[in-house]
Design a protein around this nucleic acid. Structure first.
Lengths: 150, 150
DNA sequence: TATTGTTATACTCTATAACTATA
DNA sequence: TATAGTTATAGAGTATAACAATA
């Protein structure tokens, strides 16, 4: 099936955005689905494991915020990750309502393997010359800096 | 919550890929979810409507391929789009097993509004100078051309 | 025999609302 | 009263397997 939208972009930035979306759709999504299938994770489980950082416990509600879903969903997602021994719930010292999420050693290993599979640049970027690669990286760094990120 | 992965990239392309993923995650996803909520579409319904092009009927199985899911899922997704009058099933002339999907006038309008909301470049890209915007667009065009796309 | 789309089944994700235990 | 997390519920997406109609 062909691409989604018709051309005629409002600005070079809009066209770049469109091209980035196409790249993510065609390469990023396929790779993500393949990687999580290998590791036996569902998409939200994989996103949760990516968001959680080993050695940095966070409350359930913060994970819900990062995943952009309701707290009640996180209960089930974490249940299944915990069943597989990838994360643990711990009580918070200062507030007994809060449960802190901790990545286990096994979870950290799965998380590392996932990151490894997602890190490599896809073919269209990898094939670019060194100059283009660096220019692309530098422009994107500037974009995110301008927006106050990082 | 902080970003997902640790730094130390294998190449400028790998870092650029990481930055693009961050951009999509932080801006693309939020905008997509807001747009489909306004239009009353679920994520797969919206993806289906994006993939289908008015005036270009395609078989159910081709949509399944474009969505990267099983044929059996498409039955339900299309059922709900058809209930809302956004697409129609038509019989194919040459093979009576096949059903062709057609975007209705109403579906085309919803599809247009969706595309409109997703087309604008997000703030980090829009804030770049003209030179950077054009350079970014040109590099991405080259990347997709090299990979044999478009 | 093989293929297209549907149905049946089971599991996961999703939001909403009601509940608990804390604060 | 308000908040963190759970449970209950209902709707949607997902893959697998079995099926009907057609090729």
């Amino acid at each position: 099936m062909a691409a989604a939208a018709a051309p005629a972009h409002a600005s070079p930035a809009a066209e770049a955005w469109d091209l980035m979306a196409a790249l993510m759709q065609r390469y990023g999504k396929a790779r993500f689905m393949a990687a999580i299938a290998e590791l036996g994770l569902s998409p939200p489980q994989a996103m949760a494991l990516r968001m959680l950082r080993p050695e940095h416990p966070v409350p359930m509600s913060e994970l819900a915020g990062a995943l952009g879903c309701d707290n009640s969903n996180v209960t089930g997602i974490v249940d299944r990750l915990e069943d597989r021994g990838l994360v643990e719930r711990r009580s918070a010292p200062h507030d007994r309502r809060v449960k802190m999420l901790v990545v286990t050693a096994r979870g950290a290993e799965v998380r590392r393997r996932l990151a490894e599979r997602l890190a490599a640049a896809p073919e269209p970027l990898a094939r670019l010359g060194e100059d283009d690669q660096r220019a692309l990286r530098d422009i994107l760094r500037r974009a995110l800096e301008l927006a106050g990120e990082r």
